[in-house]
Computed example of a mutant assay.
Amino acid sequence: MIDSALYAGLVSERELHAILARVPMCRRIPTSLFDARSESGIESLVRVALVEAGLTCTSQVWIPGVGRVDLLVDGRVIVEVDGRRWHQGEQSRDYGRDLAALASGLGVVRVDYTHAMMQAELVVGAVRQALRRPRVLIEA
């Protein structure tokens, strides 16, 4: 919620620090986990899960030929968080963006609401696997 409030301009970083100063240290969330670029709550949840897993995660990155992506992990894997139903035309556009990213050598992991909310460990595992491997050849 704090990411969303920062993104919407409802709270400034100075106000955030004042609010956090009132929270007991044992309950305080490190300010390094907040990101005003995060555009949705579930995007924030995925980003925090990735960061807590030790991965470097940047929000809202512009990639030439692909466009703006939700998250870029370790500069090599795009994570797109789809928290709402695709509207007509969005699915085709997203497939095109995924193809462009893959063609440029970047990995792509696309996450829906259920994955973000209830399967963070699966998301982290998929991203780690995408970071680990060069292209895999599947023999049929």
Score class of each variant (00 low, 15 high):
26 C>Q: 14
42 I>Y: 04
77 V>K: 06
7 Y>K: 11
29 I>D: 05
81 V>Q: 02
54 G>Y: 01
17 H>N: 14
45 L>S: 03
4 S>H: 06
134 P>K: 10
99 L>H: 11
130 A>W: 06
48 V>H: 05
25 M>A: 14
90 E>D: 12
80 E>N: 08
123 V>H: 02
84 R>D: 07
110 R>N: 03
59 S>F: 03
106 L>E: 00
38 S>G: 02
48 V>L: 02
13 E>K: 07
71 L>F: 07
120 A>L: 10
5 A>D: 00
50 L>Y: 00
110 R>D: 00
69 V>E: 09
113 Y>W: 15
21 A>M: 03
70 D>P: 01
100 A>Q: 02
21 A>S: 12
19 I>Y: 11
85 R>D: 14
48 V>Q: 07
45 L>C: 11
85 R>A: 15
82 D>S: 07
9 G>C: 07
112 D>F: 13
47 R>W: 09
34 F>V: 05
33 L>K: 04
23 V>R: 11
80 E>D: 08
136 V>E: 07
107 G>P: 03
68 R>F: 02
64 P>D: 12
35 D>F: 07
67 G>F: 05
119 Q>H: 14
126 A>L: 14
103 A>I: 13
121 E>H: 09
46 V>I: 07
44 S>W: 04
15 E>N: 00
34 F>P: 00
64 P>V: 07
21 A>Y: 12
8 A>Y: 05
106 L>W: 03
23 V>Y: 07
59 S>M: 04
55 L>E: 03
78 I>H: 00
116 A>Y: 08
30 P>M: 04
86 W>L: 12
71 L>A: 08
70 D>Q: 01
72 L>M: 12
56 T>I: 10
114 T>I: 13
11 V>M: 10
8 A>D: 06
63 I>F: 06
93 R>H: 11
97 R>V: 08
101 A>T: 04
3 D>R: 02
113 Y>M: 09
103 A>S: 14
120 A>T: 06
4 S>A: 05
128 R>K: 15
8 A>S: 13
9 G>Q: 07
88 Q>N: 13
52 E>Y: 06
48 V>K: 09
80 E>P: 03
130 A>D: 02
97 R>Y: 00
43 E>S: 04
39 E>F: 02
122 L>H: 10
